[in-house]
Design a protein around this nucleic acid. Structure first.
Length: 653
DNA sequence: ATAGGGTTAG
């Protein structure tokens, strides 16, 4: 090609249009080579174009290649600097933006146009946690005539919020002459993510004009801090709602364990003609996971297919896998997992492994992990939480030890408290107290409630009152309001028939005002979820029927050797009272309701909020044999598949 | 060029 003279546009256009069609880094390099041969590399405009395309190409290494090309430019102008500063500000290497910005200030003689880089460099300071550099840029801004530019001020607010410097953000906000809606919204979202709900609320009420973003941010913030009613208030007063508004409200319900309302709202959204997108689907899927009944999930899966929503896009597949696993349909989870074999996220693997773990399918979880290794997929810390809990739920102590080791040595993952928690649980369930306590002693952080509760429930399982007492003290120390520590300790005493000590625990709870969380079990019958609360009937209309069914079943099981385990009742009452209270455990009521209303031979599926109690566990085992029923119970920790007198958990729960 | 929603987790 000839040198550039005459009609440059005629000569340049082909290069630029070739760049636009570029699909791989290899093609990008070829164009670059051609530019070197034809001396176009010395033509600032064309090279800028190359740098721009490399930066915006989203090709792997595109940014670094752009930087290499950029370094060969003799007189870079403010626009090329901006392209790179902006490109790096959102990358994994935001520090490069700051370096480039400093370089720009030192080498440009004409400072016209550098203001375009200010929002980007501020963003980079926020993302790279460079407070000192951010303050320096702020200082320069104060000396320039951009100090009252809303764009620049808004970026400063955003940066300070990201650096947890709320006061500084507020200061910038206060000094602004003209605040636009984005200034207000940036302050509000900053306050919300710092947990300053009240300050956010005040600004929200004060701001002259709220837009959809302000409202959506408030709904989301209220939801994340357990204030569903306030979220509803904002949601209901909005005249225009978009899919983000609906999703924010839906996930507020999900986070506050109100899955029914989340689902109803999702249906309402569709009925008013708002199309569900990825995030909306994902949040409603987690509502269904929480609920635990697959019917709604199947409907949603169909909705995804008929609306041609790509499974492998975003978190949809992971959420579907999780939903099927948490609804007890591990086969369907596998099916979705196989469907996305061409494009899998790490979340897809993790959801499957964790799902297998809760079903006690330790061996299968290990096999999935081996597949990951064969395919050279890099596991992350969540993968190992799933894998270790799979080992612990299946009693696979050696395997657990082995993977805890290679997690650190092969994958360079530093164990977090959750990983140590899995190990404590793993040893504890297996009755290896010395090893379990050794983990607590040697881990680099303080043991938390969950760590001590793992020891505590192991002590109950293996009848070790001394270790249990100590663990209970520690657990109550770090979370005095957590009723389950008291309940577990009391169970340990009851098992040892130390009734005086049971009474002491009960007294302690009373003194501290700790209330036992009532057990609640649900069951799906004829498309409707019925909930049963321990000692009380939620479904009043079926009350009498359910109680007489339980009595009938108890009588029948007694012929098979069932003896109610009265140690599971903590109240100080006579034996007869204990017997009748045991019958009012929520899972027994749900089961009785299922036996009445679900046709013979069909499996019964129950979801419980707490751990299943020992008496109910043996009770349901017997029912599965005597009544020839498959019974699936999901409790707080895991699934129990009861069949023909035994349970899939093999007592590892 | 600056503001809003989502998964897997002891």
């Amino acid at each position: 090609m000839a040198t550039i003279s005459g009609h440059p546009t005629l000569l340049l256009n082909p290069i630029i249009s070739t760049l636009e069609k570029c699909k791989t880094m290899h093609e990008m390099r070829q164009i670059h080579a051609h530019m070197i041969k034809t001396d176009l590399v010395n033509h600032t405009f064309t090279v800028s174009k190359l740098v721009t395309f490399c930066t915006l190409s989203r090709l792997p290494e595109g940014l670094d290649y752009a930087l290499t090309v950029f370094r060969q430019i003799r007189n870079p102008n403010a626009f090329i600097f901006f392209t790179l500063i902006n490109g790096f500000s959102g990358s994994w290497n935001p520090v490069e933006s700051i370096t480039l910005y400093a370089h720009m200030l030192s080498c440009l003689t004409d400072l016209n146009g550098i203001e375009f880089s200010l929002p980007s460099v501020l963003k980079a300071c926020g993302r790279s946690r460079s407070l000192e550099e951010g303050r320096q840029v702020h200082g320069q801004i104060l000396k320039s005539h951009f100090q009252f530019d809303p764009f620049v001020s808004n970026s400063l607010i955003r940066m300070y919020m990201e650096l947890d410097e709320i006061e500084l953000a507020r200061m910038v906000f206060e000094k602004m002459l003209e605040r636009d809606v984005i200034s207000w919204n940036s302050m509000i979202t900053g306050y919300l993510s710092a947990g300053e709900i009240e300050l956010a609320r005040v600004l929200f009420n004060e701001m002259p004009e709220r837009d959809i973003v302000s409202c959506n941010a408030m709904i989301d913030g209220y939801g994340k801090f357990g204030k569903c009613e306030l979220a509803e208030e904002v949601f209901r007063m909005m005249s225009d709602k978009d899919v983000v508004s609906w999703t924010s409200m839906i996930s507020a319900y999900v986070l506050n364990h109100r899955p029914r309302e989340a689902l109803d709202l999702f249906r309402e959204m569709l009925s008013v003609g708002v199309r569900a997108d990825g995030p909306a689907i994902v949040s409603v899927l987690s509502a269904i996971s929480d609920l635990g009944f697959v019917e709604e999930g199947k409907w949603l899966h169909t909705h995804i297919s008929t609306n041609k929503i790509e499974l492998s896009h975003g978190f949809i597949a992971s959420s579907l896998i999780d939903m099927y696993a948490k609804c007890g349909h591990i086969e369907n989870a596998y099916h979705v997992f196989r469907c996305v074999s061409h494009r899998r996220n790490i979340g897809d693997w993790n959801a499957l492994i964790s799902g297998l773990a809760t079903h006690g399918l330790g061996q299968d979880a290990l096999e999935v992990f081996l597949d990951m290794e064969r395919m050279e997929i890099e596991p992350n810390e969540i993968t190992f939480i799933g894998l270790l809990s799979a080992c612990s739920h299946a009693g696979m102590v050696d395997e657990g030890q082995y993977y805890f080791k290679i997690m650190q040595e092969k994958y360079n993952i530093v164990p977090k408290i959750q990983h140590y928690g899995c190990m404590i649980d793993l040893y504890g369930r297996a009755g290896r107290f010395e090893d379990a306590l050794g983990v607590i002693q040697n881990m680099p952080m303080e043991a938390d409630v969950l760590a001590w509760k793992a020891i505590l429930s192991a002590s109950l399982k293996h009848g070790n009152a001394a270790i249990g007492e100590n663990a209970a003290l520690k657990a109550m120390d770090s979370a005095p309001e957590d009723s389950s520590s008291y309940v577990l300790l009391s169970n340990i005493y009851a098992k040892a028939r130390r009734w005086d000590d049971v009474a002491k625990v009960r007294l302690l709870m009373k003194e501290r005002g700790v209330k036992k969380i009532p057990g609640c079990s649900s069951i799906l019958v004829n498309g409707k979820v019925h909930g049963f609360l321990a000692r009380k009937e939620m479904d009043v209309e079926f009350s009498g029927e359910v109680l007489s069914k339980i009595n009938e079943v108890v009588a029948r099981l007694k012929l098979e050797g069932y003896e109610p385990d009265l140690t599971q009742v903590l109240l100080d009452i006579d034996e007869e009272g204990k017997r009748s209270l045991l019958c009012l455990h929520s899972e027994k009521m749900a089961l009785a309701f299922g036996l009445i209303n679900i046709r013979n031979g069909a499996p019964i599926h129950i979801v419980k909020n707490l751990r299943i109690c020992c008496d109910c566990h043996s009770f349901i085992k017997l029912v599965s044999r005597v009544y020839s029923r498959r019974i699936v119970v999901r409790d707080q920790n895991r699934f129990h598949h009861f069949e023909n007198g035994s349970c899939s958990c093999k007592e590892y729960w």
